[in-house]
Amino acid sequence: MGADGAPSQSVPWRKVLWERQPFPDNYVDQRFLEELRRNEGIREYRYWAVVKEASLVGQQLSCVAIFITFWLYMEQGLLAPETLLWTSLVCGLLGYGLYQAFTSQTDSCSETRTHLADLQSAALFLSFTFGFSPVLKTLTESVSTDTVYAMSAVMLLAHLVSFPYGEPSPPGSLSLNAALFASVCLASRLPGALHTFAMLSCALLVFALWPCLLQRLRENSPLQFTGVCVGVCTGGVGGLASQSLGGAVLLSLAVVSVTFLCPLLLVWLQRHKDNIHGPWDEAEICEDLSHFLH
């Protein structure tokens, strides 16, 4: 044994097991690892392209901040629930119109959902929320306020973590549920049933419908998408600044680091990427085999 004791025969070593070769078992040939391939099919990231994609994360962060700002205003009685409801209604109709415009731009006939169906689900949701808002209002009465706040914070965090940033439409079920749970918790601490109703409608608008519109915007007009993201971020920071300066500073720091520093880090670390491939990799089935079944 001993690799250095390899005989200097004229027979070249072959990478086969079925032939007994005049080499020791631990022999290392020149051709060892010759099939190793590095960084195959790697994706090169460009900084500004990554920043553009990352702006969605900053935007979502600001959305949460905007929602919290509304809630703070409502809680202190600075914002009447009627005002919020009317604003939500106008925004919702405006957004719906835009959404329809984008839809008709891209595909004309593939969507079978009618306006009537949309109206139906909106009416259903609003009437149920309105009917249940007194119940929701008293839902957490027996729970201490600190617990409710902590729970909301955790749930909003869960919303941010589990949000499907790659494909925000439709919003993922976990992220949407976490956000709505947080809104119910927060809304139940407001002074009246109408407040609760207004807050929940607002939550629906911000967490469920806005991502759908944003996705359409991203697909159809990337330029406006960037503008909207910047707008939402400014709005979030500005809104929070009117209530808590420290919070606004923290938010702006978070947004800046997520949209500018993290992409920088990604592009910089890209150079250190060392991916190895070789004959030992598990083969991937690239074809679509489902047609054999269906």
Binding site: M1, G2, A3, D4, K15, L17, P24, D25, N26, V28, F32, L33, E35, L36, I276, G278, P279, W280
Partner: peptide
């Protein structure tokens, strides 16, 4: 000492465990 069942397996193990290939036998 490490034993691998084929040469491909040896290459794989040497890379995975950062080994000196001379203490790896193929049996």
């Amino acid at each position: 000492h490490i034993v691998c069942v084929s040469y491909t397996s040896k290459e794989n193990t040497v890379l995975r465990a950062v080994l000196n290939p001379e203490i790896v036998s193929v049996i």
